[in-house]
Design a protein around this nucleic acid. Sequence first.
DNA 1: CGCTGTGTTGAATGCCGTCAACGTCGGTGG
DNA 2: CCACCGACGTTGACGGCATTCAACACAGCG
Lengths: 234, 234
Amino acid sequence: MPLDRSLISSLPAFSGLAGEDMDAILSRARSSRFAKDSEIFAQEEEAKSFFLLLSGHIRVVRTSAEGHQVVARYINEGELFGIAVAMGKTTYPATAFAAVDCVVLSWPNSAWADLQARFPAFGANAYRTIGARLQETQTQVMEMSTQQVEQRIAHALLRIVSQSGRKTSEGIEIDFPITRQDIAEMTGTTLHTVSRLLSAWEDQGIVRGGRQKVTVTDPHALMLVAENRRKKPV
Amino acid sequence: MPLDRSLISSLPAFSGLAGEDMDAILSRARSSRFAKDSEIFAQEEEAKSFFLLLSGHIRVVRTSAEGHQVVARYINEGELFGIAVAMGKTTYPATAFAAVDCVVLSWPNSAWADLQARFPAFGANAYRTIGARLQETQTQVMEMSTQQVEQRIAHALLRIVSQSGRKTSEGIEIDFPITRQDIAEMTGTTLHTVSRLLSAWEDQGIVRGGRQKVTVTDPHALMLVAENRRKKPV
DNA sequence: CGCTGTGTTGAATGCCGTCAACGTCGGTGG
DNA sequence: CCACCGACGTTGACGGCATTCAACACAGCG
């Protein structure tokens, strides 16, 4: 069954493309499902395909030679990922896990050159994605250089809820399961420190914790923390 | 006077291109000189051109809203830089300073789409450059997350000398003036800590310091430090 | 009902940033 | 040529923040 263009027509990765162009691009794609916690591709593995996340959330993890892990980013619905081919790389630079059950489109890498040449807007959007990620990553380096752990965690939480937040009666909740350990690996700290800070913030009514769950109840206060501008409570 | 293709024929950014293609690309470029410490472009400034460094060394600096600076990277001879246009960005994400007197080629951004379409190998090389920088930056995030300051500085020094080292009778010397402060801004630490560590390493015969100068006299020992595998001296 | 993964909290250690003072190099101008 | 001055570098003392170590609580699951 062919994929319908309505799946993708509103996504930024396809902006600037005519309807029949989308059809042509989709005709090369196939759709697959990945169960929660399954692996979509692995670091160092030969890159055979590139992907678009239709629904779900994906955690991208880099592992160092010594076995340390860091969470490079979370992929949201509508984003391209695993686009090693667009960077001229033959292996994936990180591992991608389904944070929840996911549906993804995938294209064989062999289709990239052709699609990119025939539909320049598609290529340009992919390159824009890479550029945006480079800039985000550099921003992360700056934060890690200049900010304390507390500000970094606050920034990370704000970033996640703004990209993957879901409004509830209590506040804005992160839309996928996330552990203290995950947050620690995003911010270069330990789960102990994350737990302590979240507990402190919960006492102050800024967030509400839960098992694999974080809800931001007072985004404004959290922003003050992120900018180190609130007076610390006793 | 037209630019000669011999200037660029051996550079990776032009690999896979025929001689006449290089001429066509060069015909759109102009060459300029920048004095030491002058600014080639500034962060947030509207991106009008992209660049190739023909000779010299360039320091790329990002400044945060609060005024903190980090050195994102050094550009070596033969590398593209300021390629915001290839990432679909309209402003430069960082400031570029000439670390020494420099000669650069520049192209107007308006030439990018055309060059990229006519000479796919040129575009692909630029995208490869961006991909490589994304990966380096992510590696830096990993290092900052998992390693101590000492290992980070050792890694940074090894990276610099491998890319911009010059052999001398004493060892491998960094080929451009670099201050303790610069090294601190590359590694997310303070000039005090850098100074202390370099002094300690000098006592151990691993490096030799100097004003705006660092020479690695024992690269192997420095690598052991980087991997945290040498027994610390008393 | 135990087991595993997750989360919380206390106490102690230590790395490295901060503060401070001084030393040194090199360029500049009298 | 020499004196001065600013940029760069060194070193010591101190302390705070976050990691480390440890113990326990709790939930979900087979």
